[in-house]
Design a protein around this nucleic acid. Structure first.
Length: 306
DNA sequence: TCAGGATTTCCTGATT
DNA sequence: TAATCAGGAAATCCTG
């Protein structure tokens, strides 16, 4: 049974359209990103439809969780029509907080036990790698950042989304689908998308997240930054693209533009010089610096939830 | 319908 | 030589 049929059986269509468009899991960009970033001896050969298998369950988005559930619905021959919208609507961090009894309570004895067992295997498998990678790459800023990144409200609370709120509205306002940054404002968007009072219900900017915000969020959100970019000077806001084309493809995926390249992305980045959202870093390739009109990336801002 | 913002696309030339 | 940078110009998409 494929995901779509599970969705149909479980009446999850509405939920599915509300899932944020978290980029790396989308099939068209997967080959390059998987090749570039991950080495997972246990992953399925069908990586394009099992992206979640390659990352820690703590990093799963709501859509990853749904995909995971649908895979196990298939393997256990579970009757998906008995699944409710609410029971599947949660992200990875929420899922990981559930104990065995809770899983059985939500999914029933057969599927619940199966899911619990598989989840424990996933958690064990990735725990060591997840921690060591964070410590290696983000020793200086991850803890601070994690203090102010709170898990998204489980998407079972779909009453937050109005009936006519579109997918793009949801996705553009929720950053990643896993975390919501507290008040990482946009100086020029001016729509209040990052204002705390608008964190939920979701208010969108007309065109969604801006490029510089997308870049910033990759940098301050280690789970989404699988070696794509790194801070050169965290305090000064200097950062470097490590996998420029992969970032460009992710950006293109977000904008539903499969022809995006680093060359085009970098042109958009250069327009930010004039607006002082970015500053030039002379003589260094793939290196940029946040300017005075950018916000949300400073350690103090993140720590204070500004 | 129109204006304006934010890219996107294409291009040429310079630099590494 | 390829990759990247710089920036002009025009096109595109979207919103108000």
């Amino acid at each position: 049974m494929c995901l779509s049929s599970v969705l149909t059986c479980a009446n999850l269509t509405m939920y599915h359209t509300a899932v944020p468009d978290v980029l790396p899991q989308q099939p068209s960009v997967l080959p390059s990103i998987n090749t570039l970033q991950f080495s997972n001896p246990g992953c399925s050969s069908n990586i394009s439809s099992h992206w979640y298998r390659q990352i820690s369950p703590h990093c799963w988005t709501a859509e990853d969780v749904l995909e995971w559930i649908s895979d196990h619905v298939e393997s256990t021959k579970f009757d998906a029509s008995t699944l409710s919208l609410a029971c599947c609507a949660m992200d990875g961090p929420t899922l990981c907080q559930m104990n065995r009894d809770q899983m059985i309570g939500v999914f029933g004895p057969q599927l619940g036990l199966h899911l619990h067992k598989n989840l424990q295997e996933h958690k064990t498998k990735y725990a060591e790698d997840f921690v060591s990678k964070r410590e290696f790459d983000y020793k200086d800023d991850y803890d601070l950042a994690s203090l102010t990144m709170e898990p998204m409200t489980p998407l079972g609370d779909t009453e937050y989304l109005s009936d006519n709120q579109s997918e793009s509205e949801y996705s553009s306002s929720s950053n990643s689908g896993m975390f919501e940054f507290s008040n990482l404002g946009s100086p020029e968007s001016g729509s209040g998308e990052s204002d705390p009072e608008f964190s939920y219900p979701l208010i969108s900017t007309p065109r969604g997240t801006h490029l510089w915000e997308f870049i910033r969020d990759i940098l301050i959100h280690p789970e989404r930054n699988q070696g794509l970019m790194k801070w050169e000077d965290r305090r000064e806001g200097v950062f470097k693209f490590l996998k420029s084309e992969a970032v460009a493809q992710m950006w293109g995926q977000k904008k539903k533009n499969s022809s995006m390249t680093y060359e085009k992305l970098s042109r958009a980045m250069r327009y930010y010089y004039k607006r002082e959202i970015l500053e030039r870093v002379d003589g260094r390739r793939l290196v940029y610096k946040f300017g005075k009109n950018s916000s949300g990336w400073k350690i103090e801002e993140i720590a204070m939830g500004m």
